[in-house]
Every structure is written in structure tokens, then in C-alpha cells.
């Protein structure tokens, strides 16, 4: 049995693209790019499954692999650090050459076997898929392989539990309740005014500044940048815009507003009123 012309065309288009995408996995610097490449390969595989008279598997491929597995990969990538580019310099001596040689060897052996092997004439699945493909699959799955099916079910439950256990973080101290955190915050004001944080919600970044990007500190009513208005992650990563740069860029605005800044005074009280009054009392 040979394939139809349409299928041949489909294959001719998809196969080279898939190989290129797979090579993208091998060569992409950023893991996210690699993941996108793999998603492409998998979706293409789903199409090929359907072409290969396996519509059910094609759907499952899309749902499980592209929908679940690859999304899980992307989640973890985000968690681990999406921007961490993978250095491609090799650290293990000779590993690159060994890897390339072995990969090429594997390719040679596999292709050699496939091309040299003699296959029987293809039968096709018309007979097996007579009463739709999922029904045929179900008959085999719940007939011949019912035990394997159940074992795999156990495996899945176990894997789910394993995921829970592995990512579970053991609590080392007592639970930090909301009440506790509130108390701590108030207590901190009394002990160390230098490191105080306002009791009210933090000011949003970019308020009263020239632009409202996340990395730009908000300006206080006095025109001074408020460090803590920038998200902590950006501060730690060193990705916040320097206050000096901000001030330098907005000098005219600040200077123009600052002297007769009656509304600014009032505006300052809005985000920091509670904090200031508390400060006044504690001093």
C-alpha cells in the first residue's frame, strides 16, 4: 500500500520543518526557544499521526504533549529563570566530539537498518478502524492490555504523589499568620526607624514619575524617588532604573513641580499618610 498524493505532499512539507525544529532544540541558546521548537515538532507529529490513520493518538498528542507536558515545561522554565541563556561552551573535555560522533553513528545505524530492512507490504488500518479508530483502540486496550492499563494507572497516581512529595517544602518555623506579620511590621517601626516600611500598601511604581514602567521608582510628594516602590525582584536583580537617572531625566518636571507643590503635599499623604502619622508619633 502506498500513500496518497496528499499525504506525500503533507509529509514533504512537514518532515523538513520538523527536522529543522528538532535541530532548533539542539542549537537554541535560550531554553524557551528550544521549548517552542519542541512544541512545533509535537504538533506536527500529531498531524502525522492523523495522517497515519491514528486520529485518536493525534488528539491525545495535542492534548497531553502540547497541552500538558510542554506547558509544564514552560512553567518550570519560567520558575527557573526564563532569561538564563545556556552557555554553549563545552566543559567536559571531548564531550562535544564524542556526542557528535555518537549522534552521527546512531543516525547511521538507524537509517542503515531502516533502509536495508525488508518490510512486508503495508496492510493499512481500514479493517482495524472499521468501527472508528478509538473503538478499535479501546478493544485492544481494555481487552489484551487491561492489566497493563491498570498498572499504568497506579503509576500515574504514584507519579502524582511523587510530584507532591518532591516539591513539598517542609515548614521549619511556626506558621507566619497575618496577625503575626502585622505585629512584626508595627514592632519593626519602633525598633529600627531607619529600616521602616510604611504600614500602608506600598506606593505603586512610576507614580508621579515621568513614566509608569515597573522599574521606575515612584516619586514622593517631595519629588524624591521611593526605592521600595519598585518590585523587590527587580531590585535584587539590579534591573531597576537608577533614581539618579530618573531624576536626571525628569529634573525639569521635578523642579517645576516641587516648589509650589501644594497638591503634591496632599498627594503624598494619600499613599503615606498612615506611615507619616505613625512616624510622628513614634518620634
Amino acid at each position: 500500500m502506498t500513500t496518497s498524493g496528499g499525504e506525500a505532499a503533507l509529509f514533504a512539507v512537514l518532515a523538513p520543518l520538523m527536522v529543522i525544529a528538532a535541530l532548533g532544540l539542539l542549537f537554541a541558546r535560550r531554553a524557551v526557544h528550544a521549548a517552542i521548537c519542541v512544541v512545533f515538532v509535537m504538533v506536527s507529529l500529531a498531524i502525522l499521526y492523523v495522517a497515519n490513520e491514528a486520529p485518536f493518538l493525534g488528539i491525545v498528542q495535542v492534548v497531553v504533549y502540547t497541552g500538558a507536558v510542554m506547558m509544564l515545561f514552560l512553567f518550570v522554565l519560567m520558575l527557573v529563570g526564563v532569561d538564563a541563556a545556556d552557555s554553549l561552551t563545552e566543559t567536559i573535555r571531548g564531550q562535544r566530539w564524542i556526542g557528535v560522533l555518537l549522534g552521527a553513528g546512531l543516525l547511521a545505524v538507524l537509517l542503515g537498518v531502516i533502509t536495508r530492512a525488508t518490510f512486508p507490504p503495508a496492510v493499512g488500518l481500514e479493517a482495524a478502524n472499521a468501527a472508528t479508530n478509538p473503538e478499535g483502540l479501546a478493544a485492544v486496550l481494555f481487552g489484551d492490555y487491561v492489566l497493563a492499563m491498570e498498572v499504568v494507572g497506579v503509576l500515574l497516581v504514584t507519579a502524582a504523589l511523587a510530584g507532591l512529595v518532591l516539591t513539598h517544602r517542609r515548614r521549619l518555623g511556626p506558621r507566619r499568620t497575618q496577625r503575626l506579620q502585622a505585629r512584626e511590621r508595627v514592632a519593626q517601626m519602633a525598633v529600627d526607624p531607619a529600616r521602616r516600611r510604611p504600614l500602608t500598601p506600598l506606593p505603586a511604581p512610576g507614580v508621579y514619575a515621568q513614566n509608569n514602567a515597573m522599574d521606575t521608582p515612584a516619586l514622593g510628594p517631595d519629588g524624591q524617588p521611593l526605592e521600595h516602590s519598585v518590585p523587590r525582584v527587580l531590585r535584587i536583580r539590579g534591573q531597576r532604573r537608577s533614581p539618579v537617572a530618573v531624576l536626571g531625566a525628569q529634573e525639569t518636571l521635578v523642579q517645576r513641580i516641587a516648589p509650589e507643590d501644594v497638591p503634591a503635599e496632599g498627594a503624598r499623604e494619600v499613599p503615606g499618610a498612615g506611615a507619616d502619622s505613625t512616624e510622628g508619633e513614634t518620634r
Binding site: 567536559i92 564531550q95 556526542g99 555518537l102 546512531l106 545505524v109 542503515g112 536495508r116
Partner: peptide
């Protein structure tokens, strides 16, 4: 035994290749 998983993977693949090559050579 250098502790690098990738080295071990290479070793495993090398072994697989040898076995496959031998089987292939014997089959033909």
C-alpha cells in the same frame, strides 16, 4: 566515573551502538 550525567549518557549510547552494530552485522 566523573559524575557527569552527560558522560554516562554518552557511554550508554556508545554501548547501545556497539550492540546494535554487532546485531546488524550478524543479521546480514
Amino acid at each position: 566515573q566523573n559524575g557527569y550525567v552527560r558522560s554516562y549518557a554518552a557511554t550508554t549510547l556508545g554501548g547501545l551502538l556497539v550492540v546494535a552494530a554487532v546485531v546488524w552485522a550478524l543479521a546480514y
